[in-house]
Design a protein around this nucleic acid. Structure first.
Lengths: 222, 222
DNA sequence: GAGCTCTTTTAAGCCAATTTTAAGTCTCGG
DNA sequence: CCGAGACTTAAAATTGGCTTAAAAGAGCTC
């Protein structure tokens, strides 16, 4: 899952980036509103975190511009302000959630998961058929059998399952899971798809990941 | 286990901090309501102790704010007041327990253990398979064989067992057991995991602590 | 407070798992 | 049947955990 953080204080930005990468997110950081908007418009993110008070272009203005472009990406505000007025303003500008500084990292993480899961549905774990993925504990179960995955394998499977019934193109996968933006002729994806298929097959959960030739992959639930 | 004490009298605060650290807790202290709330919001604690009468923001207000943020961390009040009215007030504000000053340190400790155990289950001792951990006496038994641990070894094992069947990430371990909050590239955890494994192995209880590479550790009960 | 022991932390080298690269083989669609 | 793209495999590169030894710190005794 790929996140954008728009935050001018390097300390906070670094802390968030490190913590979120530990949770297998691919994280980009922008240090002012203009460059943040730039990133948001030229890339596809699964969620954007914006500080209210940032230079060049205010957080709220960035949010408005993103919405104006038609994007429905979940947006969360970080802010020191906490009057009712601000909340209303933020939500009117198109934000999905709102977290007051100072905040616990755990709380932010929980709220991020809420936003991401709403795209999916139901409880906190991700499902596809009998496969159960728990992003909180980094565990995967097929029925009650646990499948042990490496970090990259997990991140790839998570991305495919979050987008189940949708085709995931190679370029999106390389962006969202590997955070690689330029064109490159690597075949990492193929290799990891093989790894995943082998482990899933071995657990009795074969044929989950289907190939769309020339495009990418899809996990179908039906 | 990591505690926060919000108490303005340095004498009492120091006494509590020292006493609780002697019991292997990782203890933070805040000297007024505002800074206390700050700490509570920006960190993850296993229990919070709040004095009723503190400057800037009253204890009860701090408690309300914490609950308002959705946190369910156990909260205990310290207070000189003891009318029924106050008790009701405190509990309504979201406190879990209530202890009147002056109090015996032993009693406070006992009540803290009650609050912490409710997260786990049943009786006072922690279990994982045939391993038995007694937080009160700092003893560890494998069947009837005692395993002698140093304070840090004990604290680490206790944290892992309290969170058994859940993955404990490195960053959570370093926060809850060592009380280190900033990013640091220490390898203390590795060293202590080695110490623990060696002692457990030696007692015949090998293979208890499993590594989740790139993430942390887990003790599985099953 | 000097000297001793035990605990905790730091640092370095080693080893194993993970990730990436690269090359050869296979398969689908035209 | 050809070629592009996908799959598989092996091996290189990298990362990160494990182990060890030694230094630093804490507590105790005399």
């Amino acid at each position: 899952m790929r996140l954008l953080i728009i935050e001018d204080e390097p300390g906070i930005a670094g802390f968030l980036k490190d913590g979120l990468e530990e949770e297998y997110f691919a994280v980009d950081v922008a240090y002012d509103g203009k460059s943040g908007l730039d990133h948001a418009m030229t890339n596809e993110y699964d969620l954007i975190i914006i500080d209210w008070m940032i230079p060049v272009l205010s957080g709220i203005e960035v949010c408005r511009q993103i919405r104006k472009s038609g994007s429905v990406v979940p947006i969360m505000f970080l802010t020191a302000k906490d009057t009712l007025e601000d909340v209303v303003f933020g939500l009117e500008a198109g934000a999905n959630d709102y977290i007051k500084k100072p905040f616990a990292f755990e709380e932010l993480l929980a709220r991020i998961r809420v936003q991401l899961r709403s795209k999916n549905q139901g409880d906190d774990s991700l499902r596809a058929g009998n496969l159960n993925i728990n992003p909180g504990t980094h565990q995967v179960f097929y029925d009650s059998l646990e499948i042990t995955l490496t970090p990259k394998e997990f991140a790839l499977l998570e991305y495919l399952v979050r987008n189940k019934d949708k085709v995931c193109t190679r370029s999106r996968i390389i962006e969202h899971v590997w955070d690689i933006h330029f064109d490159s002729d690597t075949s990492v994806i193929d290799v990891y798809i093989t790894f995943l298929r082998r482990k899933l097959e071995h657990a009795g959960c074969g044929n989950l990941i289907q190939t769309i030739r020339g495009v990418g992959y899809i996990i179908r639930e039906s």
